[in-house]
């Protein structure tokens, strides 16, 4: 399971303040903590309050790279912001994210090809959030077709079915989960799948329990990657155990510790 830590995000007040004061140490501490707890990569998002994202995102990237040698997921809705950050990113980056809209795909697939990055694609379009599994599959087909036609390697593509809060879209959860499995059948090279996990529990009282229940179900349907809070130990334990049950790790009495020794 490829874990992308979600905590460097301007939506969090400590990160927002650190960006305002250009205080690297706060950012670096959050980065190191997430890697120590098992993140394979870090999401970097300067948040909606940033007045100058074209400077803030590259600043965050450089601050993190001073202490961490892991892939970074550059998270912005503005391609020009992502490109500024790509210019200073050392490891193979992940662009977070494109939608299925042609004008987005044109810009972001091109960007991903030029900078040899991975790409997260949301099964979402201008028409709005898909309402069922079929709409998600349709958008996934559009994304994959575009990538294949434009020689973007499917191995580097992560499809996101768009996770919705369970208290808002309860009827959709089953479709979201099943999409993860069906995305794999679209193309001869099965595309990888990813979820932004925390969305599922947005606005609920049992956030952690809902997060870890959802992800174990998603893992059983073949989920490859997730953006989540790696500092949530019970969540990470659930991820490791789900993979154990799917025979992706060899069991031993200390399997949780063994996974973390990786």
């Amino acid at each position: 399971m490829f874990i992308i830590g979600e905590l460097i995000n301007g939506m969090y007040s400590n990160v927002r303040k650190a960006i305002e004061k250009k205080d690297k140490s706060v950012i670096q501490k959050i980065a190191s903590e997430q890697i120590r707890c098992g993140a394979d990569a870090l999401d970097i998002n300067c948040g909606p309050a940033s007045k100058n994202p074209k400077e803030d995102l590259p600043w965050l990237v450089e601050a993190v790279q001073e202490v961490i040698d892991k892939p970074l997921s550059l998270d912005s809705s503005k391609p020009e912001v992502i490109e500024e950050a790509l210019k200073v990113t050392k490891n193979k980056a992940i662009i977070n994210s494109t939608t299925a809209d042609l004008e987005k795909l044109e810009i972001l697939v091109d960007l991903a090809k030029r900078y040899h990055t991975k790409l997260i694609a949301l099964t979402l379009s201008k028409k709005g959030v898909p309402q069922n599994k079929d709409q998600r599959l349709e958008l996934a087909v559009q994304i994959i077709s575009y990538c294949v036609e434009h020689d973007f390697p499917i191995e580097d593509l992560y499809l996101d079915p768009v996770v919705l809060p369970v208290n808002v879209a309860q009827a959709q959860q089953k479709d979201i989960l099943e999409s993860l499995k069906e995305f794999k059948l679209i193309y001869q090279i099965p595309p990888k799948t990813i979820v932004g996990l925390s969305n599922v529990s947005q606005g609920t009282l049992q956030r952690k329990l809902i997060n870890r229940t959802f992800i174990t179900m998603a893992i059983s349907l073949g989920l490859d990657a997730a953006i989540l809070d790696p500092l949530d130990k019970e969540l990470m334990d659930a991820v490791i155990t789900a993979e154990l049950i799917l025979n992706k790790q060899i069991y031993c009495d200390s399997y949780l510790e063994a996974y973390r020794k990786k």
């Binding site: 060899i250 069991y251 031993c252 009495d253 200390s254 399997y255 510790e257 063994a258 020794k261």
Partner: peptide, 13 residues
């Protein structure tokens, strides 16, 4: 036994 092989390596390390 693969499980014990893995466990023993952890104990040693």
């Amino acid at each position: 036994d693969i499980n014990i092989a893995k466990q023993l390596n952890i104990l040693i390390s």
